[in-house]
Write a protein that binds this DNA or RNA. Structure first.
Length: 487
RNA sequence: GGCCCCAUGGUCAAGCGGUUAAGACGGCGCCCUCUCAAGGCGCAAUCAGGAGUUCGAUUCUCCUUGGGGUCACCA
């Protein structure tokens, strides 16, 4: 039997890395076994419908490299793949259960349910009091004929307990008394999420239900449905949750299930911050799962090969930006020149970088950026140059002082002016000057670099800074520096 | 609060009865060095607590504690 998994998001217009990690594991579970990965859109909540949200899902999966085999946009043998297009299909299943005495019409108003909840003792186990469960047949018919709004609820076992096996958590047992008579069909005729989910998973031949562990305690409800229909229960793979850190009202740091309130943990947010899709995927693959050999950097193909549900852990893991940043940097370091340039080009263009400097920039930037978006700030000195503090010329280690700086700049200007402007020539000129004057290279490089950049920290060294600035601008700045030192 | 799940350094984690308890991120220090990185080397830091089982518990059982999840006509 071929493995079939599905990703079944609701179109809310937002996909955080928790959802994405679930999708990734669903994808890996299928692909590791050469199986099929299905995309199904669960849009049964018409009130929460968000325009364009479905597109966000397509875009995210595509960018992330999680390519589905069947879905609304691709078709397949089990369509339609959008629940709103399957609406007429669910109710007959519910009616069937009513006929078989496994479900019933419930005419309770929302108001009644609310007051029930409000007056509920904390000891009360279940929300609904099963008021309509045993309504006489004539009463049901009378209400139906009168056009009274109703929902369809499933009759759950009143006592005993339900046990099922999860691939990562093992045996889970829940007292049946804790299982509510769940609503199958809402008053508007739409199926509830739980119900549609079970029907669709069965109809679409889903073999492995991979989802977050928040479903661990409601899974017996799903199983009750499978059993009522006499269908096979799928293999469950519940995933440990991804947690985010946040600060509560008292200023205390707390961790909780990842959600919108955890700041930029949306996949697209991360992309916009400059994280590479492959790096994000790589990092979240490692949240809650570890390969046997502890490899940390994976391509998607390697991930598919290495993935094994046995390596999924049970405890929740905290999303760590620092580690993501590190993974991202690893991907940048591994890039070839063409790929690096492709990513860097937009930022180069903003700064007006000359193509002649591309190769050098790759060399100095590659080990220094963890995200491409940092290029602008790293090279800020190209755009911004002002009256920096002269104390920058003082540097203990290279023994640079205001005096030595002034003397060196003064002596070097003619040399620089006569130079054929290239990296080696600049380096040679400076080191030759140092040697000739029995100075350490550092003593010479320091003031030149400071004068040219106007900041203490630059990517690359003196020669690189001068190359990026170009001959005219370099000399102009150095003269300004000398001027200020001479006052 | 009921129910369910979880528990190795700050974080991600290996371990699956006998180990000096891996590795990675982060932190710190040193080296390299014209700054900042990268790189190299090194250091600090973990089995929540208590009972058992066992010749022997991080590992198995129970309790406590802590954390998380879940209790909708939301998905």
């Amino acid at each position: 039997m071929t493995v079939r998994t599905r990703f079944a998001p609701s179109p809310t217009g937002f996909m955080h890395v928790g959802n994405l990690r679930t999708a990734l594991y669903e994808y890996l579970t299928a692909k590791h076994e050469n199986g099929t990965f299905v995309l199904r859109i669960e849009d049964t909540d018409q009130e929460r419908y968000v325009e364009g949200a479905t597109q966000v899902i397509y875009d995210t999966l595509k960018i992330a490299g999680l390519i589905h085999d069947e879905g609304p946009d691709l078709g397949g043998d089990f369509g339609p793949y959008v629940q709103s297009e399957r609406l007429n299909l669910y109710k007959p299943y519910a009616e069937q259960l009513v006929k078989e005495g496994k479900a019933y019409y419930c005419f309770c108003t929302k108001e009644r349910l609310e007051s029930l909840r409000a007056s509920a003792d904390s000891k009360d186990v279940v929300g609904y009091d099963r008021h309509c469960r045993d309504l006489p047949q004539e009463e049901v018919q009378r209400l139906l004929d009168a056009g009274t709004p109703y929902v369809i609820r499933q009759k759950m076992a009143l006592d005993g307990e339900s046990t099922y096996t999860d691939l990562v958590y093992g045996e889970i047992t829940i007292p049946n008394a804790d299982l509510d008579d769940q609503v199958l069909i809402k008053a508007d005729g739409f199926p509830t999420y739980n119900f549609a989910n079970v029907i669709d998973d069965h109809l679409m031949g889903i073999t492995h239900v991979v989802r977050g562990s928040e479903y661990l305690s409601s899974t017996p409800k799903y199983n009750a449905l499978y059993e009522a229909f006499g269908w096979d229960i799928p293999t469950y793979v519940h995933l440990p949750l991804i947690m985010g850190k946040s600060v509560d009202e008292d200023g205390k740091e707390v961790v909780s299930k990842l959600s919108k309130r955890h700041g930029s943990t949306g996949f697209m947010d991360l992309i916009n911050e400059g994280f590479l899709p492959e790096a994000i995927i790589n990092y979240i693959a490692l949240l809650g799962w570890a390969p046997t050999d502890n490899t940390e950097i994976f391509s998607m193909d390697e991930l598919i090969k290495a993935f094994d549900p046995a390596g999924i852990s049970k405890s929740p893991s905290v999303f760590d930006y620092d580690k993501l940043e590190w993974v991202n940097a690893e991907y940048i370091k591994k890039m070839d020149s063409a790929e690096f340039l492709k990513n860097a080009k937009p930022f180069y263009d903003d700064l007006g970088i000359d193509a002649a400097n591309y190769e050098m920039l790759e060399e100095i930037l590659k080990p220094r950026i963890t995200r491409f978006t940092q290029i602008t700030e790293k090279l800020l000195f190209l755009k911004e140059f002002g009256e920096f503090d002269l104390s920058l010329f003082e540097h203990k280690k290279s023994k640079s002082t205001l005096e030595t700086s002034k003397a060196i700049l003064e002596a070097l200007i003619p040399t620089l002016e006569s130079l054929d402007w290239n990296r080696d020539a600049i380096t040679n000129a400076l080191t030759e000057y140092a040697t000739a004057n029995e100075m350490k290279n550092a003593l010479v490089m320091w003031p030149v670099r400071i004068a040219a950049a106007g900041v203490a920290v630059t990517p690359g060294g003196c020669a690189e800074v001068l190359m990026l600035l170009g001959k005219d601008e370099s000399i102009r700045r150095i003269k300004i520096g000398l001027d200020r030192l001479s006052k």
